[in-house]
Write a protein that binds this DNA or RNA. Sequence first.
DNA 1: AATTTTAACGCAAACGGTTGCGCTAAATCA
DNA 2: TGATTTAGCGCAACCGTTTGCGTTAAAATT
Lengths: 346, 346
Amino acid sequence: MSEYRLPTIKEIAKRLNVSVSTVSRALRDHPSIGLVTTMRVQNVAKELGYEVNRSAIHFKERKTYSIGVIIPNLSEPFFSSALTGIEDAVEANNYNVIIGQSLESFEREKRIVENMKDHRVDGILVSLTKETSSYEHFDGLKKYNIPVVFFDRIPSKKNINYVACNLVSGMLQAVTKLVSLGHKRIGLINGPAKLAATLQRLEIYYKCLKAHELQLDHEVIVSTSLSKADNRRAMTQLLDIAEPPTAVIVFNDYVLLDCIATVKARGLVINQDVSFISFANLPIWEYMDSVPLASIEQFAYQQSSMATDFLFQLIKHAGNPAGTEPPLLQHIIDSEMIEYTRTSGQ
Amino acid sequence: MSEYRLPTIKEIAKRLNVSVSTVSRALRDHPSIGLVTTMRVQNVAKELGYEVNRSAIHFKERKTYSIGVIIPNLSEPFFSSALTGIEDAVEANNYNVIIGQSLESFEREKRIVENMKDHRVDGILVSLTKETSSYEHFDGLKKYNIPVVFFDRIPSKKNINYVACNLVSGMLQAVTKLVSLGHKRIGLINGPAKLAATLQRLEIYYKCLKAHELQLDHEVIVSTSLSKADNRRAMTQLLDIAEPPTAVIVFNDYVLLDCIATVKARGLVINQDVSFISFANLPIWEYMDSVPLASIEQFAYQQSSMATDFLFQLIKHAGNPAGTEPPLLQHIIDSEMIEYTRTSGQ
DNA sequence: AATTTTAACGCAAACGGTTGCGCTAAATCA
DNA sequence: TGATTTAGCGCAACCGTTTGCGTTAAAATT
């Protein structure tokens, strides 16, 4: 049993006294093979339990029919649902997904890129590490004709393929809601400067304030390195201001969890003494006592599946004989505010 | 650029006027090639930026150097950290991980198995769907010499390779704690009968009660289909008993979240009117107002990395020339109780 | 000096399938 | 009926690497 080998087209050919090329074509319903021969071949193939050896084809076609996915952390719901989006988009194309978690480590991201290059994936989808600020490790891939599409956490660079999320739309909804509730002093707990998302959030913040003619006060803008301790420190910093903000926009739900704990530890009441708006839309709020007023959905699934479609376009293009330049595929989708109806949780 | 091709050993051979076999051996420091030749070959290889074509080797060796991982849902922290364990264990062997989420669908699980068989993975790691109760879709793999190792959610079958978690150890710790706190009437909210884990939890429950000489009352044993609504119904059922249990062992933390909400909706206080013990150890409790007394850690990372080691043993064995029967690799690791110190969350 | 050993390398097949081109015989055309 | 098209199939190269075996010349042995 250990020496069992799958039947090959050679054996089918031998059985029927035809050539391997005839078998090869017949199996794929090639028009230049007669109907009777095609039928006989396919019957014998079924009888023998023939299955095409993909490795042989991969080898000959110089393709692996697999794409690499590099993401920071699958334990984040955002990325795990992103992966589901990729899987679904890939299934139709009969491709395989090779996964690599960078775990927010730049070095690990580089290693994974190398490994995937070695394994000759046909393309790569990437969402960057928090640490990643240089992108040379992706440059090598272009030489090997391996297209790359970034999603969500994308490089701050021009000529790349990407799908990202426009946070303005969702945030404008949220700030509008805050203003309608009477809030005038809205703080911001932002992320580390390295992330493109951080700069983006800041710009959005400015836009929203301006849209509602609110006064800009740099005192209520703080930032966190995203560590638990620093999240708490940032929140504390805001609360210690002489006139603390009545509402705070927080980088994401993870940071918010720490902020809520900090506020509570002070004996303050969420959504009464201070209200929150956050990003990421974790699926946990419905179980929590204290929730933000709203969270901004960034559509992981949609981002990743569109990025996957982009990647397949590029892969298809790479297979073209002509040396035409590949297109630059870029798209930004709109975010949306998700409201949480509960008000207080004591 | 689009026609760019990587250098092959042929070109190195041509450059140096040696044969391809010499180059092949020299690149791998084969002893039968002279030192000078080896050096010259390796220098030219580096100069040309040579990289071995894995696809060619995969083809020739009839191996893909990739393993398949089939798990229900990456959005569950348990499975995402299991995947990390697999990745880490795999990295050392220069293998790739091909991922497939069954999303708790039996049909999808079958499809993924087929797909991975088609792609000739060298082995498969599986954690079963909740729906899965027949295992014929794995039988075909043995014929193709593709070893399978199950972990955590394993088939109720004898001659399989698996790593699972023994819940007795952790649960005994937990019940001992409950008893020491004065609890005498301990309920159980169990999972669906299909799951092996459900039967296991029931047996453990019996064992624990017997160990502490507590009275067994089937009235306080209910079960849930794991849906949100049914979780709440199960908890309500327990609270509606004339003499409700003062402590409840819950199938897992997800169910527990619903139970806690149900209890609170009744105006009861967690860890005062009713205490909980749960499984799975979600990383969310530290942010919650209401927490279980303890949760039982099932060591996803350790389970999966051991399962991966098992798989590599089997893969290695499959490569053996002799037709010797592969070993049966089975292991059960102990669970542990994780205590949560906070008492009440109002 | 004749023989055996050994070091160093080349030859060629093999892995399984695809594909451009050529060939033959039948069908179609003029 | 002779010339031309076409349907149906085979030949053989090719993809890149590995490996058993053969070959040659130098080194070691007797």
